[in-house]
Amino acid sequence: MRGADDTTTFQFDGEPIAFRAGQSVGAALIAAGRLSWRTTRVGERPRGIFCGIGVCFDCLVVVDGRPNQRACLTPALAGMTISTQSGTGWTP
C-alpha cells in the first residue's frame, strides 16, 4: 500500500502531514512548513527543532498521546497522531 495517502501521512493537530519513509516527525513537519509544535512552560513561547540530533530537547511533541517525545528522533510512521505540546505535556 506504499504510495497511498493513508500510509504516508500522519495527523498533526488534526491535519494530515505527508512524509517520506525514513524522515523524522520533526523533519516532516518542517518540510510541511511547520517550524514549531511546542510552547514552553514558563513563557509559552513556540519551539521546534534546534539541534536536530536529540541533544537540546526543544523539539518535544506529543506522539500518540505520549508527551515529551523528541520530534527530531522519532521516525514518522503512517497513521501516527502527533499533537502540539504545551508546557510539560502533563495536566495537573
Binding site: 512552560r41 515529551n68 508546557g87 510539560t88 502533563w90 495536566t91 495537573p92
Partner: peptide, 15 residues
C-alpha cells in the same frame, strides 16, 4: 559518610 542518591525527573508540573 552514609551515601544517598536522589532522582530528579523531567518537569511534570504540580502533580
Amino acid at each position: 559518610p552514609r551515601r544517598g542518591f536522589v532522582l530528579v525527573t523531567a518537569p511534570v508540573g504540580p502533580r
